[in-house]
């Protein structure tokens, strides 16, 4: 859990900055290691989104959750096991710590506050998330209400 506390205006600014830094970090992962993995395994990007929501309820939002999602076609030629191994290697090389595999065809890793999860079930679906980023209620509502955006994916 990412802990942020404070209710003052200054705290709000810090909360917002902290969230935005984490969001940027997640997007950097997309532009960095996720691109590398897609290139290495020859997975074509199909669609993606980035979204936020409050952690709690409207009367106690507690903070914000971040969800970056990307979907790829299955690797063009690489067998699934090989693609999973290549993914694991690339993540480790990027400073991620591989977590135990919860079930077949999942690659799960964490790096500081971020978690990345690959699901190689036919199409490949990737979630980059952070736990509840605690903020003031006002900041949580403001960020949580942001509309979902399509994920920018620069080919090349």
């Amino acid at each position: 859990m990412v802990v942020l506390a404070g209710c003052s205006a200054g705290g709000d600014t810090e909360d917002r900055s902290r969230f935005e830094a984490l969001e940027q970090e997640a997007l950097d992962v997309v532009d960095g290691v996720l691109h590398d993995i897609a290139g290495e395994t020859d997975m074509a990007f199909e669609a993606g989104t980035r979204a936020t929501s409050i952690c709690g309820e409207s009367y106690a939002p507690r903070g914000v959750k971040l969800r970056v999602f990307a979907r790829f076609a299955a690797p063009a030629e690489m067998a699934t096991d090989d693609a999973m191994a290549a993914t694991g290697e690339a993540l480790t090389g990027d400073g991620w710590e591989l977590d135990p595999q919860p079930r077949e065809r999942i690659v799960l890793a964490t790096r500081e506050d971020l978690e990345i999860r690959f699901d190689f079930a036919g199409v490949v679906q990737v979630h980059i998330t952070a736990g509840c980023i605690e903020t003031s209620d006002g900041v949580a509502r403001e960020i949580g209400d942001r509309p979902t955006k399509d994920l920018d994916w620069a080919d090349g």
Partner: peptide
């Protein structure tokens, strides 16, 4: 509609 859009890209691997 916003919720549908948020999860639109995510597919059920069983069915596509």
């Amino acid at each position: 509609q916003e919720q549908i859009d948020e999860y639109r890209a995510e597919l059920d691997p069983l069915t596509g």
